[in-house]
């Protein structure tokens, strides 16, 4: 049976460490498929102006395209070049919830993320995305420091 690992990237340099760890782990496991995921933080309950709403679809497409070009595609290319079977996915939503949803939908066995770069008051009130993921995920989560 193929083991599926979901790698959550945050677009920062720390993502490189998550990719290295996932590659090492996949090599040890053998039959393994890697799913590189990037979640664009978004809430359906945020407030927007009428003009922002009218342009939202266009912006969404641009955000997905930018995330693919800058984060996901290079990571997938890097994994593929090193002989891994890898695919990429970009989604909008709450980072922790969406990463877990992607994992469930793809039949993933583990989520690998780097320690979140969030800080300040947001982290104190709502907790970081990483902590939220660890608390709510339905599969094992590995957090790379």
């Amino acid at each position: 049976m193929t083991t599926k690992l979901v790698i959550g990237l945050d677009g920062e340099g720390s993502g490189e460490r998550a990719l290295r760890f996932a590659t090492d782990l996949a090599n040890k496991i053998g039959d393994c498929e890697l799913i590189v995921a990037y979640v664009i933080e978004w809430s359906p309950y945020s407030f927007q102006t009428a003009e922002e709403n009218a342009e939202r679809h266009k912006r969404r497409e641009e955000e997905i395209s930018t995330a693919r070009e800058r984060v996901v595609d290079p990571a997938v290319a890097q994994l593929t070049q090193s002989g891994m079977k890898a695919t990429g996915v970009v989604r909008h939503g709450d980072v922790a919830h969406t990463l877990n949803s992607i994992c469930e939908k793809e039949g993933g066995h583990q989520i690998i993320v780097c320690r979140s770069s969030e800080g300040g008051i947001t982290k104190r009130i709502f907790g970081s995305s990483t902590v939220n993921l660890v608390m709510s995920a339905t599969v094992p989560v590995t957090v790379i420091s």
Partner: peptide, 21 residues
């Protein structure tokens, strides 16, 4: 709401925007 449509204008957002007017 279809989860695959996440990132588009939600019903809540359209309502909130209209209400702000």
């Amino acid at each position: 709401s279809d989860p695959d449509d996440a990132g588009e204008v939600s019903h809540f957002q359209a309502l909130a925007t209209a209400l702000s007017g």
